[in-house]
């Protein structure tokens, strides 16, 4: 799976979860950049990403991922192995 494809599908997930069509994420996007992305919404986002890409994050990754770039790296790792 290519990175551009992941980001395109990821954008859709973010827009859907946070109900905001203007959201565009890149590798440096963090929760500070998106208004509703706090610890309460984090899991909803994670679950939605999991469902979109058909993979699972483990809890260690969920609690430590710092930005979208890390998220994408994990998705790549899962999908390409």
């Amino acid at each position: 799976m290519k990175k551009e494809e992941i980001y395109e599908r990821l954008n859709n997930v973010f827009r859907d979860v946070f109900d905001d069509d203007s959201i565009t994420v890149n590798e440096n996007t963090t929760s500070n950049d998106i208004e509703d992305w706090d610890s309460l919404e984090h899991i909803n986002l994670v679950v939605a990403v999991e469902q979109e890409f058909g993979m699972k994050f483990n809890m260690g990754e969920v609690t430590t991922m710092k930005n979208v770039g890390e998220m994408v790296d994990i998705i790549m790792e899962r999908k390409n192995n």
Partner: peptide, 16 residues
């Protein structure tokens, strides 16, 4: 609590 209760709970089958 967030890392060891809340997140696991939210992600858990029960809540989902």
């Amino acid at each position: 609590l967030k890392d060891y209760v809340f997140y696991p709970l939210q992600k858990s089958g029960f809540i989902q």
